[in-house]
């Protein structure tokens, strides 16, 4: 410390001017996507389509068994994308989202960095908005990683033949590609709703692992409840109820009923849990 040569600082006399900038968001994105743990999560997700493609290549299954779309892979490699997305949707993807969203606020609180961000100052609502934007970015990144790696490995190992839609119509690879992209975006939006739930949970605790686990448990519980026919009255309100509605995007003609319901439900979840997170976090004592 050069106390001697430390000259008198220029005193900021006037009120500092605040500017709108994406610097903090970019810094947050770098934090999320630069973190080794999150990269490992993405790598695991990327491993699923590779595993599926290689397994199908080695065994060439005959019919009907296994998850949806699996038997179509040998016709067109693009189905690796769909099969992988269907496989990761119930558990892997929610887990990945739970890890990142559960960490959003609780992680900073646990490290103590939260108090320094708040004294910078970062307004609490802005902090939540930036954190949530990064979570959403991760949700879409995770889904697209599965889809893109699936398409790449699928086309590398299998022919790009005609793609059979659910209605029995066949379309070309180009049409199929953008339908699959729509599916990935739809799943990403569903995951963003889970991310909102996760971020709310994350404002409840200072222990990121607790927030991650609770979020994952909520995602799984929602799916369990959705499978109980006795509870059919509440099914449309469940977080995970519309997740599989991307099937509607693979019909001929394409149907938007399910996905629109799903997007509506996701928007409602994001609004409600975003507001809950704000209500909780805006007045919370940061004493970590």
């Amino acid at each position: 410390m050069s106390a001697v040569e430390a000259v008198a600082p220029v005193r900021a006399t006037s009120r500092p001017r605040r500017v709108v900038s994406t610097r903090f968001l970019r810094s947050e994105l770098r934090l999320v996507f630069g973190r080794l743990r999150n990269l490992a999560v993405l790598a695991v997700l990327a491993g699923v389509p590779i595993l599926i493609a290689v397994a199908v290549r080695l065994s060439s299954p005959d019919s009907g068994e296994g998850p949806a779309f699996l038997s179509s892979i040998t016709d067109n490699g693009l189905f690796v994308s769909l099969a992988a997305m269907t496989v990761v949707l119930p558990l892997f993807l929610p887990l990945a989202v739970a890890v990142v969203s559960g960490d959003a606020v609780a992680g900073e609180a646990n490290l103590g960095t939260l108090r320094y961000l708040l004294t910078v100052p970062v307004r609490r609502s802005r902090l939540l908005a930036v954190k949530y934007t990064a979570v959403v970015a991760f949700c879409f990144a995770a889904t697209l990683v599965v889809g893109l790696v699936g398409a790449a490995i699928g086309l590398a190992l299998f022919p790009a033949g005609p793609v059979t839609l659910l209605s029995g119509t066949t379309v070309g690879s180009a049409e199929a590609s953008w339908r699959i992209l729509l599916c990935a975006l739809y799943i990403g939006a569903c995951m963003a709703a889970l991310g909102a739930v996760g971020m709310f949970v994350s404002t409840l605790t200072e222990y990121p692992v607790a927030a991650m686990a609770s979020t994952a448990v909520l995602a799984v519980t929602s799916q369990v409840l959705d499978a109980l026919p006795q509870l059919s009255a509440i099914h449309p309100y469940l977080l995970s109820h519309w997740w599989l509605a991307y099937g509607d995007l693979l019909r001929d003609p394409m149907s938007s009923t399910g996905p629109l319901h799903g997007l509506g439900s996701a928007a409602a979840y994001i609004a409600v849990f975003g507001a809950l997170a704000w209500a909780r976090f805006a007045g919370r004592d940061v004493s970590s």
Partner: peptide, 17 residues
């Protein structure tokens, strides 16, 4: 009042459909 915000959002979210 602050907790009223998510409550209101919930009501709206349920009321729209």
């Amino acid at each position: 009042l602050r907790w009223g915000v998510p409550a209101g959002v919930l009501v709206v979210a349920l009321a729209v459909p």
